[in-house]
Design a protein around this nucleic acid. Structure first.
Lengths: 252, 252
DNA sequence: CACAAAATAACCAAAAGTTAACCATAATTT
DNA sequence: AAATTATGGTTAACTTTTGGTTATTTTGTG
């Protein structure tokens, strides 16, 4: 077998099995471990895969990160996302924030006819095959940790768009500090979105309550819908009622 | 069998099998390895195929997945891209245009330490695993045909960046109409880039000469380097010389 | 924390493939 | 018939690929 053929097959094999040991590749392809090691080196350098001790794995960033990730509260996040997506209607112009909860909304709305504005790279990539989605990327510097794009120009850009519904995430909310986020430049964008959007949906699982991080991008009374997975504490309930904010609890 | 007939059949055979070893061709066509070697040489030089160790393979674009491997002149484009990428140095701030030629530059620069500004979605996706690349996406509406992002805000955004070298594509160039592009909103962005960039590189294969499409985004004298795969006609050579534009021809 | 097992990196040498040259012969063209 | 072209065989220097060996690093376990 030619080397390139073997490399192609190894690629396919890894993609199929997500992670494989070098020993497994040795026995499947019948070449020495030395050769497998060199082949894996080539694949890793191409950027599609990454080396792990004793084996090789598909690159986390190239795979669409939905469903199969071992994130905390995955099913809770999916339920919140599903609930949020149910508010999306054909013809809407919506904003989708970056974040593990908001990005899960994709699956529950990918067949709707909507215009999506987002700072989320995963969402844009996932949306490529779905021509029913009219996608606007905010642009800016690629933030690899959150796979989001951030830019100082985001304010003018967002101002130019008319947003119907905004679906936002937060790394922590509290009555005192409002809705917070750890990256200042991202907070700036989110604040602009809150201002421009007719309706603001905040998606936060119950771990996010009474936490806060570096910057506050809006106060709690600016949101219209709060979606979470567990009934919040009494002070929150009173606050929500007082400010006429709809609460959606998806937990069982 | 005539030589040209055999060449045609070898072409078909390689296309059908994607990659074949020389030994296989020897036994299938019943000629000596020497002849096969000479035949393969001819096919490789024609640009449709590439030589691999022990065999020959159809040209494949490395970052764009298999499906649309039907891109014309793939190897010419790759050679132009390689030449262009050789101008990229560590520390540069470069702009990469959308287009099948420019996107191939990715491979030849993915390990360099550069800041990349681009409207090209493929480039951003491909760059995800390479943390040495500082990536800025221009943002805007997702144009699925060209996998590019376009926005009316591009002008302000580009103005905010200082660009070292710009690598641009065109759907057609001519002495009369300059450098042209089919999408007006994309042309607008390109025109801004030409203005802002210290050095402008234009990557066009020889088919693009004496063609033009809807909009002109800059005149020919505004570019600094013209990279192509075949020696252009005399009037172009005179024009280039007169305006002190460097010409790089990659074809042999 | 130390130890053993596993994985890795760095060499080396053998095997296979490549390139380029040369020549003789056969086929084709002029 | 002469000249040109295509083919096959051969050789030699060179490069790529591969598998084996050994030292070094990483990991898991008691």
């Amino acid at each position: 077998m030619l080397k390139v053929e073997r490399l192609d097959e190894i690629k396919e094999y890894i993609k199929k099995n997500v992670t494989v040991s070098l020993d497994e590749l040795v026995s499947v392809f019948g070449v020495s471990k030395n050769t497998i090691r060199r082949d894996v080196d080539i694949l890793v350098k191409s950027g599609e895969f990454s080396k792990i001790y004793g084996g090789v794995s598909v690159n986390r960033s190239t795979i669409i990160p939905f469903q199969d990730r071992s994130i905390q509260n995955q099913s809770a996040k999916q339920q919140i996302a599903k609930q949020a997506a149910s508010y999306v209607e054909d013809g809407d112009i919506i904003f989708i924030d970056s974040g593990t909860t908001t990005v899960e909304m994709f699956h529950f709305m990918k067949h709707k006819e909507v215009t999506v504005i987002t700072n989320n790279m995963d969402f844009v990539i996932a949306a490529l095959p779905f021509e029913n989605l009219n996608v606007f990327s905010t642009g800016g510097m690629l933030e690899r940790k959150t796979k989001s794009l951030t830019s100082i120009h985001n304010k003018e850009i967002i101002k130019g768009y008319n947003i119907n519904k905004a679906f936002l995430a937060s790394s922590g909310i509290s009555l005192k500090n409002g809705v917070t986020n750890s990256l200042p430049v991202e907070s700036y964008l989110k604040a602009c979105v809150v201002e421009k959007s007719d309706e603001v949906f905040l998606l936060v699982d119950h771990h996010k309550f009474d936490k806060y991080s570096l910057t506050t991008y809006c106060s709690l009374e600016q949101i219209d819908y709060l979606l979470t997975d567990k009934q919040p504490a009494i002070p929150y309930l009173e606050f929500l009622k007082k400010h006429d904010i709809s609460l959606m609890v998806t937990g069982k």
